[in-house]
Design a protein around this nucleic acid. Structure first.
Lengths: 257, 257
DNA sequence: CGTGACATTGACTAGTATCAACCAAAGTGG
DNA sequence: CCACTTTGGTTGATACTAGTCAATGTCACG
């Protein structure tokens, strides 16, 4: 079914040497194989990507895209989480989003990067040069279609976030975040509320949360404490939150009247 | 300017096709013919679009896309300006952007509209059904690529706006807005500041401005007054602002240290 | 067991929202 | 043509949310 022989006949580009693995099997082990761009592709198509990509493994806290620098590469996250952000000269920071396995980075890139990206934990990713992207588009137009889908989805998220940042109160922002994060984690049915007592893991620090929601860490902490005091959530530990009354959270998040 | 410039170059020699003369000449008069999607197309291609489109003329204040309603159509603005926004049940509103001639609407659409659109003045637009869009994509894949560019540019804008809404003070938001609006108006070289005394027209009410910048009309008014008092701007009348010291405005907008 | 990083809580402040008065321009109708 | 109303904008007084500054708490780690 797949033309593995042909694929492995070709010489691989530099990057990390994956020794005696074939492209397809290497990608099979990848956290992104069934997500995002790669999910749109067949095994031999993904093999093409594999050969076009340079694979990288980065330690936590690495800034691998820097706002203002020439935008040389596109990235696809294989494992680990990444924060995307913009900064002001005086240090104020706004996190514009998070990217996990399968997420494609570089959509909002012009000649210069317009945002920065930093690993939140050890991260593996595939890196593509501009030229590689070109040839991939030429070879597999479906990628373009897929990227358009991704971009449109990003736009939807962005607009939600603009509403949150521009018009919601602190407690509403926290409630909104908890619900959206639960959805992201559960991949539950669209629109459905997470079931009560569903526990979610926050790989984010309070600082990240604050910079994502346009608040300070103190306000984030206080808001979470309020929700706890009101019995809407439980906080077993710093990186875990249990949603006790998702409906009540939703009422707060959407400012139900 | 737009993101994938190097990848997507749509300029083509203009070829007059007699078969589509009607369409081509009709579109020639259109404010959008040399912008956005239509700019990517030759005359006969645009003729195809012309036949696929339903043309509408709407009075000021018409909400023609409503958040939550089934997303049946895509739109291309021909003349006039449109505001895009999201609302909370209690009436709070966040304007997520404005669309003028040549702007394509519907990028952030899933099955349901995720935002609303309202005409700010009399508006003419081309309306496409979902089916029409699909057939257009099939016929002219270049459209998809162009849409990707548009979407990517929108993403860049969105991220800037998130930084503004999440982290900037009132006065910084106003300064940022004035500069970006001047750029939009002048279509000046990227990064260049508008020259002093360049006058800009704001077709927006203070309410629109407030809902776009995540402020109240009072704060907008006060911030403008402050800038006037400090001699950075002049306000000949409600809908006109003269930038006296763009550099000073820029220092405020970007929080220069 | 001490140290440092991160989180929570408290006291106070600042910036923006709210409420209200006032103003100017643009209708509207006698 | 001129009062009267309406609409949108500005300005002032006050309230309140979230920010700032500071002390305390918690946990992981050497």
């Amino acid at each position: 079914m797949t033309s593995l022989n042909k694929i492995t006949d070709f010489r691989r580009p530099v990057a990390i040497n994956l020794a005696n693995r074939t492209a397809a099997s290497a990608c099979d082990d990848c956290g992104a194989r069934r997500h995002g761009l790669c999910d749109a592709l067949s095994d031999d198509e993904v093999g093409f990507l594999f050969r076009a990509a340079q694979r990288q493994t980065l330690p936590a806290g690495t800034v691998f895209i820097e706002e203002g620098e020439p935008a040389a590469y596109f990235y696809n996250v294989n494992s680990g989480n990444v924060r995307l952000f913009k900064s002001l000269p005086d240090g104020r920071r706004q996190i514009t989003g998070f990217a996990g396995p399968g997420h494609f980075l570089g959509l909002a890139a012009t000649e210069k990067n317009v945002f920065s990206a930093e690993t939140m934990e050890p991260v593996r990713l595939c890196r593509f040069s501009r030229a590689a992207m070109l040839s991939m588009f030429a070879e597999y137009p479906i990628l373009e279609r897929k990227l358009l889908d991704v971009a449109m989805h990003e736009l939807v998220i962005s607009q939600q976030q603009m509403l949150l940042l521009g018009r919601k109160t602190a407690i509403e922002r926290i409630a909104s975040f908890l619900l959206s994060w639960a959805e992201r984690q559960d991949v539950c049915a669209s629109g459905a509320l997470p079931k009560p007592h569903s526990s979610l893991t926050l790989p984010l620090s309070r600082t990240d949360l604050a910079d994502y929601l346009g608040l300070t860490i103190e306000t984030v902490s206080r808001s979470l404490s309020n929700l706890k005091r009101e019995g809407l959530i439980e906080i077993p530990n710093i990186h875990e939150v249990v949603l006790l009354r998702p409906q009540a959270l939703s009422d707060i998040a959407e400012a139900a009247v």
